[in-house]
Design a protein around this nucleic acid. Structure first.
Lengths: 121, 121
DNA sequence: CGTATATCCGTACTAACGTACGGTTATACG
DNA sequence: CGTATAACCGTACGTTAGTACGGATATACG
């Protein structure tokens, strides 16, 4: 194996101290991956703005197919990011209780600002 | 098509106002997808802590294969998130100039806190 | 009780992603 | 000039994730 010993041991130590453990990085990646889908992030923004929406209205607001919205909601539900309430034959979704509205809106909009204008970065 | 007219027009309007345009959501998803990889996010944390590292030291610090680090760096480079400098036969990487260190560290660690303890969320 | 609507579920398909491997360039050292 | 090292590139492979479709469940309405 090449590179047996560090070139700059101090900085390697600093990096080791600042880096996330693999397990944490994996969990973080899972959450980020959940956010890294246009339909899902748009749903979160929509729910943040409207507080509560049924699936059909959500599809209308996003101009997306109900199938796509339904699948996205299924994922968000499994991830624990949204909850729902049934009323008659409709299902109303909202963000989960502990959901960090401001953090997410703030961070995602900031990240959007640094995303390259075209291409997927 | 079912659900021709909104159940709650006001909330649909609110959602429409607060939701990201599809194009923006796509760009955001691209960036989040770039962050949604354990190797890449750990590299960003490591570079944030050590300021600059060569590929071999990075692999040592992360306890990862150089192949994995090399591929992750390639992606981060293409995304414009890191830059490099050559010195002899080594290549030293650092975060790009406009990189929002605090924002990222802050947000990612916050997000890690809300990520479920086990499973990938 | 029967039909229509709102939503969910399960499956098959396609595409994108990360990994592993072999080969290549460029620098250092003798 | 030849060998060894640091890092890169291109390709093939397996896995995963999102989409689309058909059918299922449950509620409303007559």
């Amino acid at each position: 194996m090449d590179h047996d010993h560090p070139v700059d041991p101090e900085r390697v130590a600093a990096a080791r101290a600042g880096v996330l453990p693999s397990a944490d990085a994996g969990r973080l990646a899972g959450l980020l991956g959940m956010l890294a889908d246009p339909a899902r992030s748009r749903i979160l923004f929509a729910l943040s703005a409207a507080h509560e929406l049924c699936v059909g209205d959500l599809a209308l607001a996003l101009d997306a197919s109900e199938d796509q919205v339904s699948y996205a909601l299924r994922m968000l539900r499994l991830a624990g990011l949204v909850t729902f309430r049934k009323e008659g034959r409709m299902v109303f979704y909202r963000l989960s209780d502990g959901f960090p509205h401001q953090l997410l809106e703030h961070c995602l909009r900031q990240l959007l600002a640094i995303a390259v204008p075209d291409g997927d970065g």
